[in-house]
Every structure is written in C-alpha cells, then in structure tokens.
C-alpha cells in the first residue's frame, strides 16, 4: 500500500479508538437528557472517578482486566445512582437551572474530593498484554482492538436494552410523556435510577479503557473529555442514543485528523469551529428532530 493510504488508515484506527471512548460517555449524557431533559454536567467527572476506581482495583486489589472492568462499572453505577438520589431527585420539580448548577457543583466536588485524596497523577498499570500486529504497514494493537470492540459491544447491548426490553420501553415512555406514564403504573423513580446507573456504568467502562489507552490519570481529566462527549451528544442530536454514537465517532475523527495534519494546538479550535458551523446549519443535531413550538 502507498504510504498515504497507510497513514490515513492508521488515523482512522486512532479515531475509532477515541470515538469509542467519547461514545460511551456521550450515551450517559444523552440518556439522562432524554429522560429528565437535564444536562448532567457531573457526568464527565463520573468518568474520571471511574478511571480512579480502575486504578484502585488494578493496584490495590491486584485484579486482572475483566474483574477490574466489571468492578469499575459497578462502582461508577453506584456513584451515579447516589448522585441522582442525593442531589438531583430533591430538585426534580425545582427550576431547571437549579438542577444544572447542582450538577456543576457535584462535578467540582468530585474533582476536588479526588484531588484531596490523590494529589498526584496516577499511573494505571498494564492490565493486558499488548500485542501489536502489522497489517500491511498499518499497526493495530490488541488494546485498540479491545477498546473498539468492547465499546461497540456495550453500545449494541444498550441499544438492545433500550429498544427491546420492558425497562427500555419504560425509559422511552417516560421521556415521551411525564404526566400520564406514571399513572400507567411505570415506577418512574426506579427507571430514572436505572438510567443513571447504566449511564454511569458506561462512563466507568470508558474510564477503564481511557486509563488503559492513556495511562496517566488525574482528577481534572474528566472536564475536557466530558465536554467533548457532551458535544458529541449534541452533534448527534441530544436525547437520541444512536445520534450520540454517530456524533462521538465524528468528533473523534475530526480531532484525530486535525492533530494529524495541523499542529496539535489547533485541535480544539477546529473541533469547536466545526461544532459551531454544524449547529448553525442543523441546530438540532444530526439525528435530532426540530422541536415544534406551538403558540
């Protein structure tokens, strides 16, 4: 293969890896938005705590990859439910902005609480033996493959849960109508908690994979990754699960391509300019539908 194509393919692989991580986080944003129309700004920090859970499980418990991943997802899911019950539930009928500010507050709390306990950046040990294959010049590591495949698997699982199970049907029903669905006997509080648990669990999985791909973790890493995932969700059309996945891969692709062909300091600039242009052309995202305003 010519050198140009090899370079491109390499970048596509990198983009798939980054996009997968964004997608797992973006799903949490979009699910919570779909069901509560609330932007859970603390979600990026749940991802960060997930990475620290992974560190704890790998270093202090000495667990191998699969138990570490499961434990991290479980821990993050518990954290998500706790945040929902303690901080967001009391505000469900309060003005919308109070919930947003509370979410920002929870995010700052998680960052600084982690910082207080872990003042220095941590190194996540190699949990998997990393084999690199050479496919006609394109190098593919087993870690990349696992990240991409595992994320895709989790996403298909989620898509199945949302579209094919009773719990998923209840979620979609609540996001459709909040007045009559509870009267039909749908346990709203439980379904909302499950939504948070799933979203946070996926963020925990993202934290583990991020920690394996970029091993140095610190308490502030969730801010930028979280915002990027949020952008992915909006680009895809917030509230739309398949849209969030598409948006995440687009954003991952754009970021990797910019970093590959321009000085890397332009990455954020180009990514956000593209976002701006997209929002001006399609203000409701790629898969979202425009909200009809009735007078």
């Amino acid at each position: 293969m010519s050198e140009g194509i090899v370079y491109w393919l390499q970048q596509v692989l990198n983009a798939l890896q980054l996009g997968s991580i964004y997608a797992l986080i973006a799903l949490g944003y979009t699910m919570v938005y779909g069901i509560l129309t609330m932007i859970n700004f603390a979600h990026g920090d749940v991802f960060m705590v997930g990475a620290f859970f992974c560190f704890l499980a790998a270093v202090y418990l000495g667990l191998p990859f699969v138990p570490t991943l499961l434990l991290t997802m479980l821990g993050a899911a518990l954290l998500g439910v706790m945040i929902e019950r303690l901080a967001y539930k009391p505000l469900r009928h309060a003005p919308r902005v109070s919930a947003i500010i509370t979410a920002l507050g929870v995010g700052i709390f998680l960052e600084n609480f982690t910082l207080a306990l872990a003042p220095y950046p941590k190194n996540i040990p190699m949990l998997l033996e990393n084999v690199t294959w050479n496919l006609g010049g394109v190098s593919l590591s087993s870690l990349q493959l696992i990240i991409i495949l595992l994320s895709l698997g989790l996403m298909f699982l989620l898509d199945f849960v949302v579209h094919r199970t009773p719990v998923g049907m209840a979620m979609r029903a609540i996001s459709w109508d909040k007045t009559f669905v509870p009267l039909m006997g749908v346990p709203v509080d439980l379904i909302i908690s499950i939504t948070f648990a799933i979203g946070a669990g996926l963020a925990g999985a993202a934290g583990t994979m991020y920690g394996l791909a970029y091993p140095v973790i610190d308490p502030y890493m969730g801010i930028m990754v979280g915002w990027k995932a949020f952008i992915s969700a909006v680009v895809g059309g917030i509230g739309n699960i398949r849209g969030a996945m598409i948006g995440a891969y687009i954003l991952g692709g754009v970021e990797i391509m910019v970093a590959a062909f321009l000085p890397s300091t332009y990455r954020d600039f180009v990514a956000f300019t593209l976002l701006l242009l997209l929002l001006i052309v399609r203000p409701y995202g790629i898969l979202g539908s425009p909200r009809i305003q009735k007078v």
Partner: peptide, 15 residues
C-alpha cells in the same frame, strides 16, 4: 485542598 471540596458541597445544599 478541602476548601474546594466544602464549597461545592455547600452550593449543592443551598440549591
């Protein structure tokens, strides 16, 4: 370190 933990906690309680 802890003042930046106390502050957002207070904010959430106020909200």
């Amino acid at each position: 370190v802890w003042r930046m933990v106390i502050m957002p906690l207070a904010l959430v309680l106020v909200m």
